[in-house]
Amino acid sequence: MIEISNVSKSYGSFQVLRGCSASVARGEVVVICGPSGSGKSTLIKTVNGLETIDSGEIKVGGFRLAPGVTEVSALRRSIGMVFQSFELFPHLTVLSNVTIAQTKVLKRSKAVAEEKARSLLARVGLSGHVTKYPAQLSGGQQQRVAIARALALDPEVMLFDEPTSALDPEMVNEVLDVMTGLARQGMTMVCVTHEMGFARSVANRILFMDGGEIVETADAVKFFDDPQSERAKAFLAKILKH
């Protein structure tokens, strides 16, 4: 489904991605983890072209991204993305947030789009909030709206960029529950997250990144029980201590 081949990227003289290669199969859930500044977010953003790449190639479904490829709208339509800071549209109601791309990008009729939006909002447990504005919702609720908004375009892949990092601790689980439900239904997912419990129980595979490289790729359970690289061991020791 996703094929990342030898992708590199620099900001000026600072190299954020160094020859990253990875693949994600249809229906697979892959978690990218690693210390901050390791290039996780940059890597996930290259998959839908939010970050350009300097070399290498990325294939998603039938689409191809490479340096200089600028036609990315069709690719983006087949990929849903959820951001750390939600990025809901503050001037639109919850319902409009979920319908806008349906009507403008997929040219669905208003009625069809709203029906779809309502069923998705019900799925993320927010049926009672359709007429509210994002600012009237809690962080966890906003992030669930953002997930519904991304799902509204019937994506084949969902990207999550630290979806729970901006949330108060008591709201983390309501978002993880929605993500777990999605994974169980067979959605192909790539998540950058620090939620190791989620990674262990839901992910099929872990990509461990450090210093812009993919240092280790392993089955989720194996990664936590028996990390191979020294850097992964050090990272796990730090975050699993308490």
Partner: peptide, 13 residues
């Protein structure tokens, strides 16, 4: 800037 990213990610022209 995230709002611009959100628009792009949704495929909005």
């Amino acid at each position: 800037p995230g709002q611009y990213s959100a628009c792009e990610a949704l495929g909005l022209s």
